[in-house]
Design a protein around this nucleic acid. Structure first.
Length: 513
RNA sequence: GGCCCUAUCGACUAAUGGUUAGGUCACCACUCUUUCAAGGUGGUAGUACGGGUUCGAAUCCCGUUAGGGUCACCA
């Protein structure tokens, strides 16, 4: 135990050596290690993305590991959901529960015997010890100390040290529940280097004797992640900033086992608009929610990737290949970033304006069908998308923005009607209806020319009929260019709507005006 | 409360000792117009504060303040 200081110094040196060696071509192995508690959090997606970018950038391997050591929080099917969502985002794993690999199993609940074995080693070499305090006892101890000042006192609680070797042995043999705790040395500075933040020093007097093996035989995160990262030959740990405070415990464990400490990078948090940790209460945090809203995969990935990292320069639209090529852990920001949905919308809109129409039509068909609109051809949907995409942020928004492209108007904007209606207007619409009936090629150009001709003959302005026309055909006061809209709707439909409006709808509107 | 992390326009960020502190989103104005958008042009807006170091600081150091994270037999 007296050589602990040397071990620590050694570890820091090794840490440095590892990072050096890494840049000289030693193969990079990183992991994304979510716990299956239901869905993929957007913060989790960003962590996964950075691991993916880093792995690909360095020709390394990306491993998926499921950290399901808390049986009380396990949610059925969440592993499948996680993989599904990760796949949606385009993240491919080289090893993991779904693809296998040489360092499996990749699900921690299937590795319990390994953790027990290593926990035992710790007890044997003096870095771990048995404790018998119950959860209730600990809770009471915590409650009776003000604030968060409770610290596990290994010389006062019920454990190997207070009970003695004999009693400890007897209790274990009698089947009494126990945990194994880490024996944290008394007053030592633990130093480590975070790739993003630089050197960090923490004194062991601020660290608790962490439970490593729970009484149900499962390991805690701290034991499991250190053992697995070592056994799976992980070279770089890239994870959220919330793990930073527990790094010293992990360093102690690596030292206790005599293992090299992987390089580490702790990512800044994703924040709510009020700068607290991104949470469910203030908006959607599940990636699935954003898929459901209709954000594009590439736009969403682009947006998330740039939250906390930037390749420098003025660009902000990047393909995944470009993100991989440019990614550098050193350029990750230190401060947390607010998840701003307005900016996400803007980026999604840029993708919407630049994607090929046929590709968009393909995707749009899904959303249209989902809304219960059936029987529209790909060609029609393509023309609808081309007509309206510049007016919305997300593909399915087109349906809300212009429902009249899929069904006859159910309601008519009364304010708009009141503003633009007069006795003559009705006659103009009737005249235009007749003109439309005689247009052979129902193109926006022909519609425009014919309407203008009609207006010029009477010395009228376009605005005097265009608004009533829009109202009669769409029911709304806004939309794309009206001639273009009519062209996409088609001659038959436009005429039917105008006739229906003039004979059936109009009287009811006039009545209520 | 202890410990740790952080701090450039409202937001995301660029500028790694020398820039009129740049870009994007948002916002405002003008423009275009057939409404709503989009587009075009222009604009408002930032180095948290106080000390150092330096010829020179957003940048390095110290302090203050503010925010966040963490202190479980959760991850």
């Amino acid at each position: 135990m007296k050589s602990t200081r040397n071990i620590l110094a050694m570890a820091i040196f090794c840490n440095f050596v590892i990072q050096k060696r890494m840049s000289c071509g030693m193969s990079v192995r990183v992991r994304f290690a979510p716990s299956p508690t239901g869905y993929l959090h957007v913060g989790g997606l960003r962590t996964a993305l950075y691991n993916y970018f880093f792995a690909r950038h360095n020709n390394g391997k990306l491993i998926l590991r499921i950290e399901d050591t808390d049986r009380t929080r396990y949610v059925e099917n969440s592993v499948e959901n996680l993989i599904k969502t990760l796949t949606w985002a385009g993240i491919e794993f080289d090893e993991g529960p779904h693809v296998g690999g040489p360092y499996g199993p990749y699900v921690q609940s299937q590795r319990l015997h390994i953790y027990r074995e290593y926990a035992k080693i710790l007890v044997e070499n003096g870095w771990g010890y048995y404790a018998f305090d119950t959860s209730e006892e600990l809770e009471n101890a915590r409650k009776s100390s003000p604030h968060h000042e409770f610290k596990y006192d290994r010389y006062k609680m019920r454990n190997q040290f207070t009970l003695g070797e004999e009693e400890t042995k007897r209790l274990i043999e009698s089947g009494a529940p126990y945990v194994i705790r880490l024996k944290v040395p008394e007053n030592q500075d633990i130093k480590f280097i975070d790739i993003i933040r630089g050197e960090i020093v923490v004194n062991t007097k601020d660290i608790d004797d962490q439970v490593l093996l729970k009484s149900d035989g499962y390991p805690t995160y701290h034991l499991a992640n250190v053992v697995d990262d070592h056994l799976m030959k992980i070279t770089h740990i890239i994870r959220g900033e919330e793990w930073l405070p527990s790094v010293p415990k992990h360093i102690l464990l690596y030292n206790a086992f005599g293992w090299e400490v992987p390089a580490m990078a702790h990512l800044p948090l994703l924040l709510n608009p009020d700068r607290t940790k991104l949470s469910k209460r203030q908006g959607d945090v599940a990636v699935e929610d954003y898929i459901e809203k209709g954000y594009f995969r590439d736009a969403f990935v682009n947006f998330i990737a740039l939250l906390g990292w930037n390749p420098s320069g003025d660009r902000e639209i990047f393909t995944v290949e470009e993100l991989i090529e440019k990614f550098q852990l050193e350029k990750v920001n230190k401060a947390g970033a607010i998840f701003d949905i307005v900016k996400l919308d803007a980026i999604n809109a840029k993708y919407l304006y630049s994607k090929p129409i046929d590709e968009l039509a393909e995707m749009f068909a899904y959303w249209v069908e989902k809304r219960g609109y059936k029987g529209f051809s790909k060609d029609y949907l393509a023309r609808v998308v081309a007509l309206l995409r510049e007016r919305v942020k997300k593909l399915p928004d087109i349906i809300d923005f212009a429902p009249y492209m899929f069904e006859r108007p159910k309601e008519y904007d009364r304010e708009y009607f009141a503003k633009h209606w007069s006795g003559e207007v009705e006659q103009h619409l009737k005249n235009l209806l007749n003109i439309f009936k005689n247009i052979e090629v129902f193109s926006h150009q022909n519609l425009h020319d014919e309407v203008m001709k009609y207006l010029n003959e009477r010395n009228l302005k376009l605005k005097e009929v265009i608004h009533p026309l829009r109202l009669a055909i769409t029911g709304l006061s806004y939309g794309a260019g009206m001639f273009e809209t009519m062209e996409v709707l088609g001659k038959e439909e436009v005429i039917a709507r105008l006739e229906d409006f003039l004979t059936r709808i109009l009287p009811t509107l006039v009545e209520k005006k």
